[in-house]
């Protein structure tokens, strides 16, 4: 701290007197900061921004991974939007997944957070346990486990048979149900929104509830009139983050369908389709175009969420 202010006072003033070398001055003044930022900066420019820009260029080429790319103009984009039935299938699957998994997951996370917020013993332990699926959820092992659970003779069907005497189908490999098992997998990973909800719930002053109780408001009324409105910024945050995550979902579908998106494209997530095109069929240019369309879709979704937020999110003034 002392060192920093010294630099600011002496060096800063001295160099400010000089008219040239503004960039250098800024650099010198913040050198320590930039050095500490260096790993992140290298990662951002080298591993995120660089490849992203390269893929933007490649999306206008016929790059096939092995030969040098040739410029094809907007041909990839035209084909995706006008002549690609698999693109439509992938969009349907992805949107169904987003629309189902995000609200269900948030509702579940909120319910668990509210249960915890009533002050139970050993909260830290429970919180850790309930957070666990979020750490494991997108891993390969869990996807494999899911496959076992929901296969024809998996644990789920065994339970259904024992309890209800009902012979279930092979959920994971039936095109009518496969996607819903993946939605369930996503809901099960409610940990991170739950932690955030819990923090949000803690912020709500208890005297509000006391006042409401004195005025004769029931639990349900308290929830809808106090908890929900005051929690809207947190709900909004969680919704945006989870929606983006859901659009990007890849591992579960990849493992469960062995990269095929099957049966009958029923788990053909957008990212999975993109991956197939890029690495399965060597159409890297086409896959890059698909990726940029996904970027546009996610950006639009987020922008609209923020535009709509002003009508339902209450911030403390």
């Amino acid at each position: 701290m002392a060192l920093h202010s010294e630099i600011l006072s002496k060096e800063g003033r001295a160099s400010a007197l000089r008219s040239r070398g503004t960039f250098r001055r800024i650099l010198e003044r913040n050198a320590a900061g930039y050095i500490f930022l260096l790993p992140w900066l290298l990662g951002f420019f080298g591993l995120t921004l660089g490849p992203a820009l390269a893929s933007l260029y490649l999306s206008f080429t016929n790059y096939d991974l092995l030969q040098s790319p040739d410029w094809v103009g907007a041909a990839n984009y035209v084909r995706i939007l006008s002549d690609d039935p698999k693109f439509g299938a992938a969009m349907r699957v992805t949107f169904t997944y987003v629309v189902l998994s995000v609200p269900l997951k948030l509702a579940f996370a909120l319910a668990v957070a509210m249960a915890f917020n009533r002050g139970i013993k050993g909260l830290t332990l429970y919180r850790a346990i309930f957070y666990l699926p979020s750490l494991l959820g997108s891993s390969v092992a869990i996807a494999v486990l899911w496959r076992q659970l929901f296969a024809s003779d998996g644990l789920v069907n065994m339970a259904l048979w024992q309890i209800f005497g009902f012979e279930g189908p092979s959920w994971i490999s039936n095109p009518d149900y496969a996607l819903y098992t993946l939605v369930l997998l996503s809901v099960w990973q409610f940990g991170s929104p739950m932690i955030i909800f819990l923090a949000g719930l803690r912020q709500i002053p208890t005297d509000m509830y006391e006042a409401a109780e004195m005025d004769g408001a029931g639990k349900a009324r308290q929830f809808f009139k106090i908890t929900l409105p005051l929690l809207t910024p947190v709900i909004f945050f969680n919704a945006v983050i989870q929606t983006i995550e859901a659009f990007k979902a890849f591992t579960p579908a990849f493992i469960i369908s062995e990269g095929t998106g099957g049966p009958i494209n029923s788990t053909l997530f957008y990212t999975l389709y993109l991956y197939q095109e890029a690495f399965g069929f060597f159409r890297m240019g086409y896959a890059s175009a698909l990726a940029w369309i996904l970027v546009i879709i996610i950006s639009l979704f987020t922008a609209f969420s923020f535009l709509g937020a002003r009508y339902w999110v209450h911030y403390d003034e």
């Binding site: 296969a151 024809s152 189908p169 092979s170 994971i172 490999s173 039936n174 095929t260 049966p263």
Partner: peptide
């Protein structure tokens, strides 16, 4: 049946 065959990932294990 179809849903059992769909578990086949075209390898030995499945």
């Amino acid at each position: 049946p179809a849903d059992v065959q769909a578990l086949d990932q075209q390898n030995i294990e499945s």
